[in-house]
Design a protein around this nucleic acid. Structure first.
Lengths: 398, 398
DNA sequence: CTGAAAGCGCTAACAG
DNA sequence: CTGTTAGCGCTTTCAG
């Protein structure tokens, strides 16, 4: 029984109630915009609220409403798996193993103080630094893709007064943490962006009966909504464009084949090429990074010096390919036409700007968010998924 | 009095206590790792916890501990200011007016839904789309800088079991929301990255007595810790390098002069040049975007066709400058040497790779996070700030 | 339309 | 070392 009115802490409902001369219940009603409150009292309460500088305590509210009014945005992927060694889930079938270094520098994180100097190094082999430590987080943000996802999610959430909690889940430990986080009720649901197929997270979440929506269809079916792109159609657009402009010796730099999008873009491309009389298309597997695109292009050029068209499964690799082509004296699109995929910022960072297949990432992310919020509002609504159609954006490179 | 043991909801302390045959307090102690608990009972409790599948309810815990164990990562900037019209806070002093367009595209943000397709357009003039809608969020992520900040923050937070809530505050409305969010106790403190001087957010947060640490020193002094880079020193390194390699007709593309970093990098550069006998350096103001770098370079080239060295205040602009130089037949670094700033991913995306001044963003962000956590642990500890030293990274462009 | 009262699940004194 | 007892601040029946 603290009979003392002015305590140290932040003002509570009680304080406002006292100031307005009403009960806590009434203040609560006004604050939550419940009807059935006399306009006069309503006004009095409002005044009391601003006088006291009251702000509702979220923990208390959540405790009773059982809602956090927050959602998690989690990037899930293979990444470094300390315990599982390397989860190199068979680098697909057809392609060549690339032998890309997957290991990274220290990572800024862990230990004691970061000291005062910068974090890790890694990435470039010869060049040492390079604007990104090797952590999973850094790898994720190295691709403009993720920034676009965040943009779409945030722009959808903000007008609704919500903000995403950013989480990463590349190890089984981290995945457990995500599940725990949700189970603790810190977030009402999760938006998960998987960078690899076979990602166990969607399954874990579904098993725990937690709400989630995925970006990209999960490898093994899970009763969870998702948004995805018609990757094959996108690859078809690229193939047709290259063919239409007269290219006849076309090659492709695929994405990692253990990533559904990588796989789909390749098969979509191959299928279309085959249908147009090109059953064999030279392909080198990349890792969706600029550097892997460069290496792949070097290789393609070495094995097929006469090629006149290249489809890279994303813009970053296309950008790398362009660099290599130019270094080898090939003009773009004169000698070799190049088509990318995504229409990310890399497309405009390239000279000439890339002709590319647009993936409306922001819109897809917004839709994903809408689906999650829908589901939170109607927990037993149907599990619906949305597939977006890509479109060709013609610029200078092809 | 729910005498019924097995209710529908998630298991609570009570359930675990019953299962283990002890009191709630004891379970709480075990769960929170408090010593003074008989090892035997401890084991029994642990077993009960896993049997029941217990997960502590965060809201309940936060309600009593008064800690959210969460922090906000907020990007604050000018952005589109519906209410305040344009906050063009005097374009600095020394420099030349330039008349560079400072306004941006519409901004998806505010209004109702984002629709289902991607966000706005904007940015490119001729090319329309381009991997980034015009929202503040999109603009933020268009620069690799922010992804690096997130990386540094997340990598520091993760080992400590914390995750950042992402917020943007480019309008006064959004700023109020950030303050409200903190006051509601949803986050214990904020990491704020201001993209403009005169940002009122730090002041608002300080006035509200909330914990925060800033990236970059605030324009008007605020009793809040911050991390920053010795921008002037960085610019000096760039100037000296250009001079050392024999350049004599050097120009610079500055950042926005109303951004402290932009201003400091310019004055640092000018001072060093002056000290070496070059009191007048051609300068064109850019906006830290690739496109503005291109435009600035076009102009510089038109006015000073004989220049042999360029310092761009960030890598994105340096990249744009390189494109333009090459288009004008200038070889890099043969005809013109180019030095960038930041050592972001754009530095390696450039051909030749950029010689640049490294800003250890990830490390700075980690330090910023450490400072915040420190302060949360010791609320009345001293307000300390850390200034990082940049270093020159020599690559191919100069 | 408003107030009284009962908790939500957890931690933290305070006894034992 | 363990159990009892108060609440943390809010929403929400349930009466009036």
């Amino acid at each position: 029984m603290t009979d003392d009115p002015r305590s140290a802490g932040a003002p509570t409902l009680e304080d406002v109630a006292r100031a307005a001369g009403v009960s806590r219940a009434t203040v609560s009603r006004v604050v939550n915009g419940v009807r059935n409150v006399d306009p006069v009292i309503q006004e009095a309460v409002r005044r009391a609220v601003s006088v006291t500088g009251y702000t509702p305590n979220r923990a208390a509210r959540s405790l009773v409403t059982r809602r956090a009014d927050a959602i998690a945005l989690v990037v899930s992927g293979a990444g470094v798996e300390p315990e599982t060694a390397r989860a190199d889930s068979g680098t697909g079938a057809s392609a060549q193993g690339e032998g890309e270094e997957h290991r990274d520098g220290g990572g800024t994180g862990d230990g004691a103080g970061t000291g005062t100097r910068s974090g890790g190094r890694a990435f470039g082999k010869d060049e040492d630094s390079g604007g990104g430590s090797g952590s999973f987080t850094a790898q994720v943000f190295a691709d403009p893709f993720f920034g676009r996802v965040v943009t779409g999610v945030v722009d959808y959430l903000r007008p609704r007064g919500m903000h995403p909690v950013l989480m990463f889940a590349e190890t089984s430990r981290a995945r457990e943490e995500v599940v725990a986080y949700l189970r603790q009720g810190r977030a009402d649901g999760a938006l998960v962006v998987s960078t690899h197929a076979e990602d166990p997270l969607p399954g874990l979440i579904a098993d725990a009966g937690l709400a989630a929506v995925l970006y990209a269809r999960p490898a093994r079916p899970v009763p969870v909504s998702y948004v995805d792109l018609a990757h094959q159609d996108g690859a078809r657009l690229a193939a047709e464009h290259l063919l239409d402009r007269g290219c006849r010796r076309i090659a492709t730099i695929s994405g990692p084949l253990d990533v559904p999008a990588g796989h789909a873009r390749l098969t979509g491309f191959q299928d279309t090429m085959a249908r147009h009389g090109h059953p064999y298309v030279p392909v080198v597997e990349g890792r969706f990074t600029q550097e892997s695109g460069e290496r792949a292009m070097e290789r393609l050029l070495a094995e097929h010096p006469d090629l006149d068209g290249v489809f890279a499964a994303n813009d970053l690799m296309a950008l790398g390919a362009c660099h290599v082509l130019r270094e080898h004296g090939r003009s773009i699109p004169g000698d070799v036409a190049v088509v990318g995929f995504d229409d990310s910022s890399a497309a405009l960072a390239c000279r000439p700007p890339l002709t590319t297949v647009r993936q409306p990432v922001e819109g897809m992310a917004a839709e994903m968010t809408r689906l999650l919020l829908d589901r939170l509002a109607r927990p037993d609504g149907p599990v619906t998924s949305v597939i977006f159609e890509p479109e060709l954006v013609v610029r200078g490179s092809a």
